[in-house]
Write a protein that binds this DNA or RNA. Structure first.
Lengths: 195, 195
DNA sequence: GGCCTGATCCTAGCAGCGCTAGACATGCTG
DNA sequence: CAGCATGTCTAGCGCTGCTAGGATCAGGCC
C-alpha cells in the first residue's frame, strides 16, 4: 500500500462523510422528500454518479445517516442516565433525553425510526450503537428484574409513539411534559391489580 | 335536478368509491410505494386524468382511504370495549383490538397513522370517526378521572409505538401479547411513587 | 522521458413518477 | 337538428432514482 493510495483512500473517506453530512443537513433543513440525488450531488460539488461510487443508492445514504444517529443517541441517553443514576430518576432522564433528541433533529429521527429501512433491529447484525442505545433503557431497571428487556422494549415503544405522533402533527406538541411524567410514573409503578 | 343527472351523480359516487377501494387493495397487496396513479387508473379501467376529476391528487386519495379506516377502527374498538365493559378488561380488549387492526391491515394503518397527512387530529376539523375512535380509549377510564384524556393519549401513543415499530421490523413480531399485558397493567395501575 | 494502464469523473440518457393542457367524442337541451 | 356541455383520452412537462459510455488524468514501467 503506497502513500499515494493511502492518500486517495483518505480523500475517499472524507468525501464519504461529506455526502452523509450533506444529506443530513439537507434533510434537516427541508425534509427528506427534498433530498434528491441531484440536489445532493450539487451540494457536495460532484456529479450525480459519484454518489453511486460510495453508496448503492439513496437508501444506502439514508442508512448511513441513521447509523450515525444511533451513535449520537446512545451517548446522549448514557449521559442522561449517569446524571442521576437512581432507577426512577434515571428512567425519567433517559426518556426525556430520548424525546428531546427526536424533537431537536426530526429528520434524523425519521431516518432512524420511521422511514423504511433494512437495518436489523434486535438481531445478530444489529449495529452496536443501536444496541447500546437500547441498553440504556434496559439499564434503567434493576438488574434482578427478570423482565427488564420487556420493560425497556415497551418503554421505548411508548416513547416512539409519542415522538412519531407529535412529529407528524397527530398529537399537539403541548403537554409533552405531562405525557412523559405520566408514562414514566406508570412504567415504574410496581405491578399489581387495580383500575 | 333531473333523473339523468341523479344517475350520473350516482355513477360518479360509485366510481369515487371504486378508486378508494382499488387504492386500498393495491396498497395492502403491494405496499403504498406500488400505488402509482398509472397503475391505479389501469386497475379501475379509466385513464389517469379521471382520478383528478375526483381527487386533487394522490395525497387526496390516500386521505380518503385513511378516513375510511378511521370509521372501521372506531367500530372495532367500540365492539371490543362493549364486549367486556368493566374498566380494566375493557382497556385490555380495546388495546388488543387496536393492535389487531394494525397488524391485519398494515397499509391501511400506515395511511391513517404513519404516512404524512393533512388530516387534523385533536382539532375542530377532526373527522368524527377519528374522534370517535379516540373516545373509545377515553371511555376505558373512569368518568371522574380528571386526566382520562391524558391517559387515553398516552395509551394510544404507546400502542402506536408498538404497532409502528413492529410493522417496520424494528421490534420482532413475537411477544406482542406480553407487551400488551405489561402495557395495560402499568397504565391501569394506581399511580404512586415506586420503582 | 514517453507510453500504457487503470482509476476517476462527467455528460447524456432511460424508465418511471405526479400531474395537466388540449383535442376529441358523446349525449342532453333548446 | 344545431349547439352546447360534459366527460374522457392522448400526449407531454418537469421531476425522480439510477446507469451506460466516453473523456480525462495520474501512476507505474520500460
Amino acid at each position: 500500500m503506497s502513500a499515494i493510495s493511502e492518500r486517495r483512500e483518505r480523500e475517499r473517506a472524507q468525501r464519504h462523510q461529506l455526502i452523509v453530512t450533506a444529506a443530513r443537513e439537507l434533510a434537516e433543513a427541508e425534509g427528506w422528500e427534498a433530498v434528491t440525488t441531484r440536489r445532493l450531488a450539487e451540494r457536495v460539488e460532484y456529479s450525480q454518479p459519484v454518489l453511486y461510487s460510495h453508496f448503492t443508492g439513496k437508501d444506502d445514504i439514508m442508512r448511513a445517516v441513521a447509523i450515525e444517529g444511533f451513535g449520537e443517541l446512545a451517548t446522549r441517553l448514557r449521559r442522561a442516565r449517569l446524571t442521576d443514576p437512581a432507577p426512577p430518576a434515571a428512567l425519567h432522564a433517559v426518556c426525556r433525553a430520548y424525546l428531546e433528541f427526536a424533537t431537536e433533529q426530526p429528520a434524523l429521527y425519521q431516518a432512524m425510526f420511521m422511514l423504511p429501512t433494512d437495518v436489523k433491529f434486535a438481531h445478530a447484525e444489529t449495529p452496536p450503537p443501536l444496541r447500546a442505545a437500547f441498553d440504556e433503557f434496559v439499564s434503567c431497571f434493576h438488574p434482578d428484574n427478570q423482565r427488564r428487556e420487556l420493560f425497556a422494549e415497551v418503554t421505548w415503544s411508548a416513547l416512539h409513539g409519542i415522538a412519531a405522533l407529535t412529529e407528524s402533527g397527530r398529537i399537539p406538541p403541548n403537554g409533552q411534559a405531562e405525557r412523559l411524567d405520566f408514562l414514566v410514573t406508570q412504567i415504574a409503578a410496581p405491578p399489581r391489580p387495580g383500575v
